[in-house]
Simulated assay, not measured.
Amino acid sequence: MSEGSLGLSVGQLLRDVLEERSLSMRKLSELTDIDTSTISRIINEKRKATLDHLEKFAIILEIPLAKLLQAAGYPVDHKHVIHSTYDETIQQLVETSELLSADISIEKVKLQLASYEAYVQTTEGRERILHDFDNKLKLAGGVGPFVDQMKELFTRFKMQDVAKRDLAIIGSALLYFIIPVDVIPDYIFAVGYLDDAIAVQIASSVLTKNS
């Protein structure tokens, strides 16, 4: 199926949004950290946008990621796209520590969380959380069981009303959510945020034990 058969191509969509908001490709480059020439080639349909490109465009331009994926020709199953709610069955799987497939393991998530703990305690890590959390929250849909938990952790992180060790645990879960290097990529709809939810459950469990 061609891009055009689904409506606007990703190039046309980006061009219209930039024109509507009086944004130049150079400014979009600054905001997304994507080279201006790359953006130009995507807009002029001389190259295909990668999933990383599309996620950055979605965050900065506040365009639904599903819309960009469809315009770029990526398959999207609209029956399973997460917009405003988090699937209760997935939440139950997380809460009972069950796994959706062999591709995801709680141990992998734990290892990733542990790797973020030192970064959380740096100025750069803290600023990244404070600066990028809201944008990633919008991309995730903004509401739902795991998102509500993530908001609560973010509030505690901002207030810094917990012990240093607990702050590192909270920050590692927030970074896992923000940084697009997941056990399951976020663009895999219906399960893409499952490992982020697992990260929240792991962090919450550790915090409960520490309290």
Rank of each mutant, 00 (worst) to 15 (best):
G11F: 08
E152L: 06
T85S: 11
T155M: 14
H80M: 04
Y74D: 07
A140M: 11
T50F: 10
H131N: 15
A72T: 04
Y187A: 07
L167V: 00
Q112M: 08
V81I: 11
S40C: 11
E124C: 01
Y86H: 08
E19S: 09
Q149C: 08
S172R: 01
D195S: 13
V143R: 13
N135P: 00
R126Y: 09
S172H: 03
T85M: 06
S97P: 00
P145V: 05
A140D: 13
L14D: 02
I178A: 02
S29C: 10
L111Y: 12
F189I: 06
V147E: 11
D103R: 10
Q121L: 12
H78N: 05
L18S: 06
Q160A: 15
E152D: 11
A114M: 14
M150F: 13
M25C: 00
E127H: 12
L18G: 04
I43Y: 02
R21Q: 12
R26W: 01
H53P: 10
D182A: 09
L167S: 10
I202R: 06
L137N: 01
T123H: 03
K46W: 08
K151F: 04
P75G: 05
P185W: 13
Q70D: 09
E107F: 04
P180S: 05
P180R: 05
L8C: 03
D196E: 15
L194K: 08
G192Q: 07
L54Y: 10
K46C: 02
A72P: 01
T38G: 05
N135W: 06
D166K: 12
T96P: 03
G7S: 07
T96D: 09
K110V: 04
R128E: 10
I104F: 12
L100M: 07
Y193G: 00
D33I: 11
D103N: 13
L130W: 04
D148T: 14
A72L: 01
G7F: 00
Q149I: 11
N210G: 01
G142Y: 11
P180V: 06
R165Q: 07
L18R: 07
Y86P: 10
A140I: 10
R41V: 02
F189T: 08
F154R: 05
S2W: 07
T89G: 08
F189D: 15
D16V: 01
Q160Y: 05
D103Q: 14
D196N: 13
I63Q: 03
S24V: 02
D186I: 15
P180G: 10
D195W: 04
L18W: 03
A72C: 04
L139E: 15
V81T: 03
F157R: 15
G4T: 09
E55D: 14
S204Q: 15
F177H: 10
D52H: 07
D166P: 02
H131G: 10
D77R: 00
Q91R: 05
S97N: 14
A58V: 08
L100I: 15
V143T: 14
N210V: 01
V147P: 12
K209M: 15
L65P: 13
T122K: 12
S9G: 07
G141V: 00
R47M: 13
S22K: 13
Q121M: 14
Y187S: 06
I184N: 07
